[in-house]
Nucleic acid binder design. Sequence first.
RNA 1: GGUCCAUUCGUCUAGUGGUUAGGACGUCAGGUUUUCAUCCUGGUAACAGGGGUUCGAUUCCCCUAUGGACUACCA
Length: 507
Amino acid sequence: MTERKIRVRFAPSPTGPLHIGGVRTALYNYLFARNTGGTFILRIEDTDQARYVEGAEDYIMDSLHWAGIKVDEGVREGGPFAPYRQSDRKEIYHRYADELISKGDAYYAFDSPDELERLRHEHESRGVTFNYGCVSRMNLCNSLNLTAEEVAGRLASGEHYVVRYRMPENQDIHFTDLIRGEMVVNTSTIDDKVLYKSDGMPTYHLANIVDDHLMEITHVIRGEEWLPSLPLHVMLYRSFGWEAPLFAHLPLLLKPTGKGKLSKRDGDKMGFPVFPLYWPYGETATGYREEGYFPEAFVNMLALLGWNPGTEQEIFSMEELIAAFSIERVGKSGSRFDPEKAKWFNTRYFQMKSDDELVALFMPLVNDKGFYPSPEKLKKIISLVKERAGFVRDLWHEADLFFVAPETYDPEVVRKRWNADSPGQMRELRDVVAAVQQFTSDNLEQTVKEWIVAGPHNTGTILNLFRLLMVGVSRGPHLFDIVELTGRDETLRRLDNGIMRLSSKVS
RNA sequence: GGUCCAUUCGUCUAGUGGUUAGGACGUCAGGUUUUCAUCCUGGUAACAGGGGUUCGAUUCCCCUAUGGACUACCA
């Protein structure tokens, strides 16, 4: 095993949009593969025809692509072990089921779903759990207690059947999980799982083991929900006589508050996405991409949710994650998802973007608003407002004052700053501003401040009123930067307009 | 109900048989910014409980509690 080249796989089921927990599983597989010089495989596990959802397969691949997780072998990429979609490998599994039957480790079962359902209900009403296993199987309809002729007859007549694994009785199975360590489970507590369904498709358990073996997977890194079936999988490897891969079961992502694992509802309720990309089918859902998250921030956030480097570093590029990642440092317990921290990660990446990058990202939004500034001007604006935003789309909220004159004036600020003397003060200020020939931030600021100091006016009052008339609210970049970028004509227009409107309101 | 897994600030987590139990997010306060935000400084806040083992347990063991997963011809 140690000699073998490391090969890992992400094996999602195309039953809907890929949840961020799934993306994290894929990410950890990818990081592990790259860290060890191994291969990352994407295998589509679509053995359940009933739950197959059109578009889900593309969604999975698009999501990984967006996140920067590169698939080495997969449905789109191909590879030496193709095909990578289980429905395209359908004929492979049958003979492995047969192999197990001939070894006596599996058997045919003819019980109808209705009959089993009835049995379950009946047991439940008595307060016990029905198990198709070592205690009940001899009372049920299967090849273990039918004669060979009967079995052959039923098979020949085309009767529906499933193949079940014959779980041995009372054996302690010891196995190791890379994250949780040694574990032991007694086989008597495990039921006889269906390996092969009556529709001619294998179940997850069979297909998964067969494909992992055939594709020479060395490490199975998957969600914790699979931990209970690990003993079964270990037994299957033994029955086949195959060397089992190493297993690592990742803890789950939990709701931000309350009980249970993260679900779509939490996102809807608390206003954050639970999926990487927009899901356009059926019940639609927004994605991190559409909400304006940078894929690097998204990946960084996900990587730190359940794994840590053991240092105090929190910001990691993909390359740094690859270099630092190890399964040993994955935590044992579930992680609550914190949407606030997700935003914080994005803000950090946003601040790291160059002004030019942000111009390219922001320009379309500005154009949508009906404005067409030169890239140079937009760059200047961005440099002034960038530090107060965490997302590209926040930028408009910060930058609109450069495009649109205030329509309203914050009543709170008006009440606090605008009094009977204000109109006169503002008209004086207006004349000072109008008189400045070189209309730059530096000389205008100097002139205005000198004028204030020389006169009877209060600096704070004048400047705050000036801002109110320019912007309408008490926030935004350095006042004189706004004035410079807005230009003399527009500045005077805003002053005149404000004086007029606020004077009439007060009197 | 049964099986398995887990448990350090509100959240993500580091860490150790003897530490002032560290960092980050959030939050609070102060400073900077004559605005808001950023930024800086500081504060807040945790070893689930009970038994052991030990000179000494947050750390090792057991029990309990709590949380989680699984318990389909779904993955």
